[in-house]
Design a binder for these strands. Structure first.
Lengths: 341, 341
DNA sequence: TTGAAAGCGCTAACAG
DNA sequence: CTGTTAGCGCTTTCAA
């Protein structure tokens, strides 16, 4: 389709090869290929045909070096196991595309030292912009990013100090709103099931906001279980089982997210625990999964795609640093219910 | 932390700046930075300190161009919405890391034309290797890949002709095994619920294998529903509802994957349909979600992390093209049951 | 509209 | 062990 009969990886093709075949100068080929500058229609055709005949693939490495300005965007996320981050990536995708950029992705596993390392090596590609998750970074990471001179977006959290552009919502406020909802429903004996909060700062902030609001309503967490290293349906199921075996008087349980909450729901279904009459459940994230459950899960919907999209848009903008609060939406489902004391 | 008092993006720092400050030659700095070649401890320290003082970040663009050999690996996947692909990425990650490589990710949305475009632009970065999903590609894509001279891995399917390295399992065999299982259980009135099979070739192959095996057992699909554009829990729930409203005599339904099957399960739970007594359910993928359900889902477990890992390993190996069949495992859950006719 | 020539910042010989 | 010298393949002046 694309190359001569003697295919195969011999000497890599260069612009010069195309130029020779097309009988034009290298710079002319360059102009045609980028559709920049001027050239006659005839020349253009000759070049295009030479490119196709040869199966030439443009070398962006050299191009970027020469023109100083890459089309790579560094994206650093904590995990791929939690659907939240793929969702953010899905939001970023089309915008990066539209800008002719490609994401280079690094996964930190919620480890700031690893993040630092990743940022360093992404920066080595002279990316057009950098997109990270959350506001917690090492000092060195922050310094590198600032010194890099590229736009930086931090996504999914606005509780703290940002480097440049910050897009997300207040996780603390999510926790507060969740607590207010449960209190308003009349729940007083409230449990919490979560995963490791020392690494997941956003989950920690929700937890803190939740507890703070309970406290100011004169309620304290009746019991909690947060042994799970990472959030998962299975962990939610097991954790709720453990929690209930210790504390039988719980009226409602707040989970660190929907995966965990669905796990809890499964435990209830399997164990014949009536939801919400006997036990209320509340999650976080607004996953489709929770909304498709027999009883739609009470949760907080977060605009993950929008955050990705806005973040990407913002790094391509010019202007001063800014914070974009996308907000969130508490979705009262059928797994909690207003109680008549 | 890293730079002088007068921070900010002025003239980008180069190796030469470091060399000057450290009072050594550029190549010495280069050697130290890459830990390659020899240099005295004293020199090393001088260089390191200069680098830190300046906050210098290595420019891999130039480095790669000069040494011809990047550390980028192109990864092309159809979607991020289906947890399967993030799982594969998770499998790739550590291996790429160990090789000092970074993934550049492209998402095709199950569109071969888009894939072609992505492959072209990834190839423009002169990646160290390319990793794709499935065996279905445009002729031009195949040609570019072959001409590129880099190792190419195609993951998740082995039913077809590969370009170089192929890692996965037979989706057709999955469909066949699933049908055999249901037949062996004694089911005869079998339904199918799936998503768009014209784009998802692997789902299509499972479907074909499934139908072929049914046929050879003298059974035909009693009903099917495959309107959903993409697989999802909600789509599974709705599709099953529609299917059952048309065909009330179904004994079991085979879903295109676990998400859909869990959706079906939710429909059954909500509608008071007894599973498996009244209706059996079978999925595909072996998601944790399905296994944590009140009744563990009958499904086929696929080694997604392993496929990612093996694929990554393979592209760094030398040797002839090969096919690695990772196999799959049929997991009889509690949502199907052997029937006594 | 086109070509020639000078880099982009680094690595890879090759001397010393 | 270290510095010098050519490029890597492209883009970009600047003339023609």
């Amino acid at each position: 389709m694309s190359a001569h009969s003697n295919d195969g990886p011999q000497r890599p093709l260069t612009l010069a090869d195309v130029a020779k075949l097309a009988r034009v100068g290298e710079s002319t080929v360059s102009r045609v290929l980028r559709g920049h500058g001027s050239f006659s229609q005839r020349t253009r055709e000759r070049v295009i045909s030479a490119v196709e005949q040869l199966g030439y693939v443009h070398n962006r490495l050299a191009g970027t070096l020469a023109s100083s300005g890459s089309n790579l965007v560094g994206v650093v996320i904590p995990s791929l196991a939690n659907i939240v981050f793929p969702d953010v990536l899905r939001g970023l995708g089309p915008v990066l595309d539209a800008e002719g950029c490609q994401p280079v992705i690094g996964v930190t596993d919620y480890d700031l030292a690893r993040e630092e390392e990743l940022v360093r090596s992404l920066l080595a590609w002279r990316p057009r912009a950098m997109i990270l998750s959350g506001l917690e970074h090492s000092e060195a990471t922050r310094a590198m990013l600032k010194a890099s001179g590229v736009r930086v977006a931090e996504l999914l959290d606005i509780d703290g100090e940002g480097i440049d552009i910050v897009v997300g919502f207040s996780n603390r406020a999510v926790g507060e709103a969740s607590a207010r909802h449960l209190i308003a429903c009349g729940y007083r004996s409230i449990g919490y099931v979560g995963h490791d909060l020392t690494r997941d700062h956003r989950a920690r902030k929700r937890y803190e906001g939740f507890c703070a609001t309970l406290k100011s309503a004169g309620v304290t967490l009746a019991a909690e279980e947060r042994s799970a290293p990472a959030s998962s349906v299975e962990a939610g199921r097991e954790s709720l089982a453990r929690l209930l075996s210790r504390t039988r008087t719980l009226e409602v349980v707040y989970f660190s997210n929907d995966d965990m909450a669905i796990g809890g729901y499964f435990h209830a279904l399997a164990g014949g625990i009536a939801v919400p009459d006997q036990l209320g459940l509340m999650g976080y994230n607004g996953l489709e999964l929770g909304q498709a459950a027999p009883l739609p899960l009470t949760t907080v919907r977060t605009p993950r795609l929008l955050i990705g999209e806005s973040g990407a848009r913002a790094v391509f903008s010019i202007g001063t640093p800014q914070v974009i609060d996308t907000g969130f939406e508490l979705v009262p489902g059928a797994t909690t219910r207003r109680r008549t004391a």
